[in-house]
Structure formats: structure tokens, C-alpha cells
């Protein structure tokens, strides 16, 4: 698995440096356009792991790298678990980067005269709860997305999977719209939960729980992907 993680990061290194710059620009632009630092942070949190997932999957198919990699002393299960680990590390790194960027931006904005800072970007309008919720929520949603996409990419390769993944996503969206068509009304237990989130640091507990749930789905997906990758012919 170590071989896989090292090779993934060796291959991604130039992309990571470029992406850090792109993310900073996007976060600032989105924050300014939406008048919320949290939304910019959520956007880069969601975008980064998914972009890198597709970068890695595309690179796998370049010049027979994926086939050659299997000639190294590494089993197919290690390839799959290594890829999941790489993307898991990227997800954690993205959380750290998005939080650091957001709080850094807020710190800079706090030093500026209040008159020149747009109202929505003022530190008072962007409490830590909103930023942490946006970042962790964004990463968790995308981890679930990766949990759906990765087994298909592992089984069929990037080229075929680009046709299959959107179809699966559309099916999930259609089911979601059908199920929550009338919108989610925060009543009963859900209303209590929303109220509970507003108390003290409960949002941190909620973020940790959501993260745990997304991680559990991600692990199950890795086990499925490992089974599917065993059958892949090269």
C-alpha cells in the first residue's frame, strides 16, 4: 500500500502545487461573490478531492502505467486500498488547507478597516461553526461521491467509468428528488437536532459524526472496489 501512496503522490506533486494556487483564487472569488467565506471554503473542500481522483484515474491509463504498476511487488488489493488511502489523505489535507485558508483570510480581513470589508465577509458573519460545517460537510459529501465513483473506475477504467459514473449520479439525484421532492422540513427530531447544533460546540461533535459516517461508507466502498478490481483484465 505504501508503494501505491508514494507513487500517487509522486505523480500528483506538480498538480498539487498548481491546485493549491487555483483553490486559493477560487475560494477568494467565491467568498467575494457569495459574500461568505464559508461558501468559498466549502467549494474548495468539495472540489479538490474529486478533481484529484479523476486526475489519478486519467494518469493510470497513460502509457500503460496501471498495467506496469501491477508488475511491481504489489497486489491488486494493495492497489485499491492504496488509492483509497491516497484520496483519504487528500480529503484530510483538503480540510486542513480549506480551514487554514478560511481562517487566514478572516484574520487578514479582521485587520482591515470595517468600512472596506463587504458585510458578508466580516469575521462576525463567518463564525467557526459555519466554516467548519461547510468544509467538513463539503468533504464528506465528496467522500460519498468518491465512494460511488471509485469502484466503477477501478472495475472499468477511467474511460468507461466517465460514461457510467454520471449515469449513476443522475439515478441517485432522481431518487433523491423523488424522496425529498417537497423539501426537508426541520420538524420533530430534525428540528431538535438543528437546535442542538446551535448549542456550544455541538457542531464539532456533529461534524465528527458526519465524518465518521462518510468514512464508514468510504471503507465499505474500498472493500467492494477491491473485489471488482480482482476481475479487471489488463
Amino acid at each position: 500500500m505504501k508503494t501505491m501512496i508514494v507513487s500517487d503522490f509522486a505523480i500528483l506533486r506538480p498538480t498539487l502545487i498548481q491546485l493549491a494556487g487555483i483553490c486559493a483564487v477560487i475560494a477568494l472569488a467565491m467568498g467575494y461573490a457569495t459574500g461568505s467565506v464559508a461558501s468559498g471554503a466549502a467549494a474548495i473542500a468539495a472540489m479538490t478531492p474529486f478533481m484529484l481522483l479523476f486526475s489519478l484515474a486519467a494518469i493510470d491509463e497513460q502509457g500503460g502505467w496501471e498495467r506496469f504498476r501491477l508488475t511491481l511487488p504489489i497486489t491488486r488489493r494493495q492497489v485499491v486500498f492504496g488509492r483509497y488511502a491516497t484520496l483519504g489523505i487528500i480529503a484530510l489535507g483538503t480540510i486542513a488547507f480549506a480551514l487554514a485558508l478560511s481562517f487566514g483570510v478572516l484574520a487578514v480581513l479582521a485587520l482591515l478597516p470595517a468600512a472596506i470589508v463587504p458585510e458578508g465577509l466580516a469575521p462576525a458573519e463567518n463564525p467557526p461553526a459555519a466554516i467548519i460545517g461547510g468544509v467538513v460537510g463539503g468533504v464528506c459529501v465528496i467522500m460519498v461521491g468518491m465512494a460511488v465513483a471509485l469502484p466503477l473506475i477501478m472495475r472499468f477504467g477511467m474511460t468507461k467509468a466517465t460514461r457510467i459514473v454520471p449515469a449513476v449520479v443522475v439515478i441517485f439525484l432522481a431518487l433523491g428528488v423523488g424522496f425529498f421532492g417537497s423539501g426537508i422540513q426541520p420538524t420533530g427530531v430534525l428540528a431538535d437536532f438543528v437546535q442542538w447544533l446551535d448549542v456550544d460546540s455541538n457542531y464539532l461533535v456533529a461534524a465528527a459524526l458526519i465524518m465518521l459516517a462518510a468514512t464508514a461508507i468510504y471503507i465499505v466502498s474500498a472493500l467492494v472496489a477491491a473485489k471488482l478490481y480482482e476481475r479487471r483484465a489488463f
Partner: peptide
């Protein structure tokens, strides 16, 4: 074919070998 992806450097191929 050359097995390593385009973004890989000669040095990073060595890192992969060291890990493998």
C-alpha cells in the same frame, strides 16, 4: 512503452522504486 506517467520525473521514478 515508458511505463511512467507524463507528470512523473526521473527522480520520482526512483522514489517509487524505493517504496516498492
Amino acid at each position: 512503452t515508458c511505463a511512467f506517467p507524463d507528470t512523473c520525473t526521473v527522480k520520482s521514478a526512483g522514489s517509487i522504486g524505493r517504496a516498492a
